[in-house]
Design a binder for these strands. Structure first.
Lengths: 342, 342
DNA sequence: TTGTAGGCGTTATCAA
DNA sequence: TTGATAACGCCTACAA
């Protein structure tokens, strides 16, 4: 008896009641007797009833779907964030649709529209590196669709954000290197793009100042912060014959690139040069030496983003004041920065 | 003028035509004049019309949504597969919903039901390690809902599958080690669970036989194949004082664990022991030495899975014969297995 | 080529 | 506590 799917009408017919009653029974509506409720639930099971969320969504004007846009899903950090969102969302009977922008603004807009067409109830976004237009997000706000930005955010759109304290992360990393006795600390960063790097840089500067270490601008290298960029910057660094005893890279990928070049050139890590990355990508514990880095607690970030989303949803009718949730990062100390020996 | 969302009725009203005409214009129905079509498209743009896919889905009985279930999203391999699926799906105006089973059967069933409630048009699944029941998938088949299994599959459910030739992968890896002069090749595997490991093991055996290398069962170590398992197995291996000159680990994670223990014990890789992993996880190019491994072309696998899905969808009315798509793996040779020196 | 009418499955409103 | 009715936005026979 596969036949067709059972609907609330089928249940109603069997029980000689109406669909509205069935609907109420199924939705824990208080205006229903225990007896009929029990009967309905039993019949629902018998008929293997599966609610059609689509119909409910159409009627209610909400889909129980949350859209997430990330630059790329293929990155431990982002997939962990997604996982965090799912954990919270699933508990509240929401599902998650994921799309990638591939760091492209047009793609970001297209994918956003696709999500809207799928009638998501709201969108969580980590904006792409090159995104310089935000009209599509402002539109969203005007249309009253909940929007939460996480990790890579902007203040241009007046909505809730979830970030880690990148400033603190940069500070902790730099301070740690200073405590290891480092005085000439190179910094790899990318100040032209998203805020997160600027904040980490600010932490770096502040830690230097607090410890009376003179800032040397020539020790700051800017790039796209991929592995290959870390390699290139380190090669330039070595070729320049500048003195340095540490590198704080605002990206784990660039840090690994640095590690490779240093080793290839016989520079010992951490003995000659201490090294710290940022993000706690899984591979940082696999390198030799393992890489000191800063954990951003991606799962917690996802959870916080989801919670922010639901807060907006709750507050929809009242006026809502956008919140900025700031998570604390943690320095994960591994071998690449431990001068004190084993 | 934010007001409410425009519907086809709004467009119709503006143009003094009916909603059905608008619908036809919007859906490239041939029964429409070029003139009205142009007018409708123009007005749609003016009113910033966004189609309500929900309503269309309800009416048509299909949602343009594909559900994907993976053991964990936080794994380069799986997230790349998802990306591959997205590429194909998005082109055909389908969206993707992702869920994780976390390697748990009950979770797998729950998540499957959630996807069905979201009225996905079909499901792509990589089954969990511990999944030993398949009724929920058989149900799916009976209900005529397209199902495609990928990577971790089973033959218990008569549906299309997409896998790589794990046997060939195991063969290539082992053969490569033999060509490097290795004769005592340890194998890390997990034969109690999913097929993929059995196939890799079969490739290992066959390569040994083809090259007249005697098989020594005591060189096969079984575990859960995580990093820590690789460490444990390698410690046991060293403690046993067996002679060996290579390790072929059916998982990159276990291979990295092996690499760590070997180095900690002063065993040189590749000079003393050559090492090959499996999956081409990104970190395999970051280790020192970089890790020889087998690429499974996850993006291509995702694309193939999506294509299989659409084939089933197309053929829905006719009888459909399940297909097994087998992708060819590729050996990625890096430093960890190159005895011939730099 | 266009219009009419009905319904996809559910829920909200009103009345009983 | 339950029933009747309409509506969410769209698509599709069928009729014109």
């Amino acid at each position: 008896m596969a036949s067709k799917k059972a609907t609330i009408h089928d249940i109603a017919k069997e029980l000689n009641i109406t669909a509205s009653t069935v609907s109420r029974a199924l939705n824990n509506n208080p205006r229903i007797s225990e007896a009929t409720k029990k009967a309905v639930l039993g019949m629902a099971k018998d008929l293997n009833y599966q609610p059609n969320n689509l119909a409910a969504a159409l009627r209610k004007g909400k889909s129980q779907l949350i859209g997430i846009i990330v630059p790329t899903i293929n990155r431990s950090f982002f997939s962990s964030v997604i996982r965090g969102v799912e954990e919270v969302a699933n508990k509240l009977n929401y599902r998650v649709i994921v799309s990638q922008s591939n760091e492209d603004v047009d793609n970001e807009i297209a994918t956003l529209n696709a999500l809207l067409n799928a009638r998501v109830d709201g969108v969580l976004v980590s904006i792409g590196k090159n995104t310089d237009r935000f009209e599509h997000y402002k539109d969203l706000m005007e249309r009253g669709i909940p929007l939460v930005l996480f990790d890579r955010t902007t203040n241009e759109v007046g909505t809730s954000q979830v970030v880690i304290d990148d400033y603190l992360g940069g500070y902790l990393a730099t301070e740690h290197l200073i405590k290891q006795g480092c005085k000439k600390i190179v910094h790899f960063t990318n100040l032209k793009q998203v805020n997160i790097y600027k904040e980490r840089y600010r932490g770096y500067l502040e830690a230097l100042r607090d410890n009376d270490i003179p800032f040397d601008e020539s020790l700051v290298y800017q790039s796209d912060m991929q592995l290959v960029d870390g390699r290139n910057c380190t090669e330039q660094l070595l070729a320049s014959h500048k003195k340095f005893d540490a590198i704080f890279s605002a990206s784990d990928y660039a840090a690994v690139g640095a590690l490779q070049i240093l080793k290839e050139n016989g520079v010992k890590v951490p003995e000659d040069v201490a090294l710290v990355g940022f993000s706690n990508e899984p591979f940082t514990s696999f390198t030799d030496p393992s890489l000191t880095t800063v954990s951003q607690f991606p799962i917690e970030m996802g959870q916080a983003a989801a919670e922010s989303f639901f807060e907006i949803l709750e507050a929809k009718k009242k006026k809502f004041i956008p919140q900025k949730t700031v998570l604390q990062p943690e320095l994960i100390i591994r071998d690449s920065s431990l001068k004190s020996g084993k």
